[in-house]
């Protein structure tokens, strides 16, 4: 597979690899994909509860070079955005930025799902806190909408 320079750059120098404390009430965690499909992305955001701005983002990805690059790029884009802005990131934005080959489009779909799953997790935590029963979720349940296409 011949990759664009941008994919290679993210693969060789991935941004924001790592983990945030998943039980922190200001941290949202999204885990999407499945090992048997060949890719799993974990994406985390740390949100400023006052401003709703994402102050930090981290990822870990099991997958091909495109999957690693897509999630690395996603964390770069998330930092400094409000949750609303972050929810508007589309997989096609990632495809265009990285020049993903057609066979790797599902990697960008997975990254979009990971963003949404992380934000949903954060919002769920906030709701639980508002309703007074928040302990902060931390169960390793992978979440994310089913993708129609078979991925690798």
């Amino acid at each position: 597979m011949v990759y664009s320079d941008k994919i290679l750059d993210h693969y060789n120098n991935p941004r924001n690899v790592g983990s945030l404390p998943k039980n922190d009430p200001n941290v949202g965690t999204g885990i999407v994909g499945a090992p048997e499909c060949g890719d799993v992305m974990k994406l985390q955001v740390m949100v400023n509860e006052e401003t709703g701005v994402i102050e930090d983002a981290k990822f870990k990805t099991f997958g091909c070079g495109s999957a690693i690059a897509s999630s690395s790029l996603a964390t770069e884009w998330l930092k400094g955005r409000t949750l609303e802005e972050a929810m508007r990131i589309k997989n096609t934005d990632i495809v265009n930025e990285l020049s993903l080959p057609p066979i790797k489009i599902h990697c960008s779909v997975l990254a979009e799902d990971a963003i949404k799953a992380a934000i949903n997790d954060y919002q769920k935590k906030r709701e639980e806190i508002v309703h007074g029963n928040g302990k902060g979720a931390g169960k390793p349940v992978a979440a994310g909408p089913d993708l129609a296409s078979k991925s690798s």
Partner: peptide, 24 residues
Amino acid sequence: REMSPLKEMADEGIDLKKVEWSKH
């Protein structure tokens, strides 16, 4: 492996086979 979520989960003692993955 440093950037693998599976490795991290395995190190935390999570049984990867019991996780409910979102198959796609």
